[in-house]
């Protein structure tokens, strides 16, 4: 596993699935990100941690096309495909390429059922157009059934099969977070981007979530880039960790390396604590 290698060695040895070079982002005068370098290797779980307002969500928005980075290069390496420069690419195309995300403040489609929410994820992998939808020939029906079945399968993977026909707004909080993951998985990504998936969950739910991420990674062979505040989860789940503060990566390495880095301890505990 990548755990044993150090970051630099690994990045040179294996082709990454995502490589970010010198990315910066300005909001007017505010410098939200600067000189961010980050790699995700195949099958890896990489965590991005940092204090509130460090720029983690902004970073996700920059690599998924919601914002266009002010500078730098973001390159994706889809399975059996050519490397693709994706900064400034339209969000839907980034998703179609194979990078699917969840949101820190849950963004489901509230008046659609859980199943339909996942079915939306299948949109970019299906083709039916207006004419096909109106005529509903055998091809369309086959595709529809496939969408339903595949989506239900995803719901099963996150343990929501019993709630398939509930409106997503009526689901409990933890279930909504898992539903977002199922929806992202339905797009057949090679890289799953999770923005604080355990936020608001109790310790038991968090543990279940952790097991789920491990299972998903094995089964779908996806890499995971994870923003998380729950240190217990981050330390036990990730292969590598990047620590961000004021829009800069201040430390990177294995969980052990990072947790012993004085820079990180200072960032988390404050300036005074090491005095």
């Amino acid at each position: 596993m990548a755990q044993e290698m150090t970051n630099q060695n690994a990045a040179q040895a294996v082709q990454p699935v995502l490589s970010v070079r010198n990315v910066g982002m300005n909001f007017g005068g505010l410098r939200a990100l600067s000189e961010v370098n980050l790699d995700v290797l195949p099958g890896e779980v990489v965590a991005l941690i940092g204090p509130n307002g460090a720029g983690k969500t902004t970073f996700f928005n920059c690599i998924t096309g919601i914002y266009t980075p002010s500078e730098g290069e973001v390159t994706a390496y889809p399975k059996n495909g050519k490397p693709k420069r994706i900064n400034g690419m339209r969000t839907n195309l980034v998703c179609e390429l194979g990078m699917a995300r969840t949101f820190q403040n849950i963004r489901l489609f509230p008046s659609m059922t859980a199943l339909e929410n996942v079915m939306i994820g299948r949109h970019c992998r299906t083709k039916t157009g207006i004419l096909g939808a109106v005529l509903r020939g055998p091809g369309t029906r086959r595709e529809e059934q496939e969408v339903v079945d595949k989506s239900f399968e995803m719901l099963t993977k996150v343990g929501l099969e019993k709630l398939a026909n509930e409106y997503s707004r009526n689901l409990p909080y933890g279930a909504q977070r898992r539903l977002e993951i199922a929806r992202a998985l339905a797009t057949e990504p090679f890289l799953l981007l999770l923005d604080e998936p355990a936020a608001g969950m109790n310790p038991q739910e968090t543990e279940e979530l952790k097991q789920m991420v491990i299972r998903i990674r094995e089964e779908f062979k996806v890499s995971v880039l994870l923003i998380e505040h729950d240190m217990k989860m981050v330390m036990s789940l990730s292969d590598r960790i990047y620590v961000m503060e004021y829009g800069r990566i201040i430390s990177t390495g294995t969980p052990k390396e990072v947790s012993e880095d004085p820079q990180v301890i200072r960032a988390y505990l404050g300036e005074d604590s090491d005095a």
Binding site: R90, T91, N92, A100, I120, C124
Partner: peptide, 13 residues
């Protein structure tokens, strides 16, 4: 329901 989520899930808005 949600334009940003919709686009992030691969739909061409």
């Amino acid at each position: 329901e949600d334009e940003i989520a919709c686009q992030a899930m691969g739909i061409d808005n």
